[in-house]
Design a binder for these strands. Sequence first.
DNA 1: CTAAAACCTGACACTGACGTCAGATGCAAG
DNA 2: CTTGCATCTGACGTCAGTGTCAGGTTTTAG
Lengths: 122, 122
Amino acid sequence: MRIGDLAARTGVSVRSLRYYEEQGLLVSTRSPSGQRRYTDKEIDRVRFIQRLYAAGLTSRTIAELLPCVDSPTAQNADAAWEQLHQERDRITQHIEELARARDALDQLIAINREHRSRLAAG
Amino acid sequence: MRIGDLAARTGVSVRSLRYYEEQGLLVSTRSPSGQRRYTDKEIDRVRFIQRLYAAGLTSRTIAELLPCVDSPTAQNADAAWEQLHQERDRITQHIEELARARDALDQLIAINREHRSRLAAG
DNA sequence: CTAAAACCTGACACTGACGTCAGATGCAAG
DNA sequence: CTTGCATCTGACGTCAGTGTCAGGTTTTAG
């Protein structure tokens, strides 16, 4: 599977895939001429990376977490434990923050509705 | 109230306050020498702006929404209506995305726990 | 065989909300 | 008066992920 195929099947740009590799998030074997080759496994890998990006994790953080997933040792498992819980807490906090912001927006919507009905009547 | 005071009372940097003004989100009267003066009203204003930023709204979007809040007319109320609902939907979608990402992280945490207990026992 | 399309590396551009610095001015205290 | 802090404008730096271009090689289709 070439990089364009992987891009097509994941919806991620070719540029991003090369960037992921540069950041140590994604590995590829190379053809004799140097072109990247991927297996189907990498599809899930990319989607997984996208998930973590969506969670607001930075590529650096993801890179720190992945060794624990790929080849767990006592050392990296312990190191990852802290970070995993830290990120989980951050996401939870972010969700709550967004919920509050949505409430604020709902108030604006209510005000707006009032304005609109009043202005439509007036 | 000078800009440093407003910064202290809102927890927002002086730089940011000037930036908000530059973007049309915040207004100030000026002393004869040109220094910005604020009233207590601006404290709430800044906090409100921060809320919308936390919701992921861009300064441009906030600037489009504010006229409807400040001096509602039929025109800007109608224009804001669409945008308000659009942003609300976006936030909801974002929250769901974060929740999914957190689930992914929870799976990682579960895997990590297994590794740790296995490695501790082995 | 040849043209087109895909790939390579390397580098610069962009976005957005700021940080930060420079050089000048304002203002309160000793 | 002067010392020193706050403020002003203007400009450039930052981060992170990605777009995009240049210039060259490889693969594929006709």
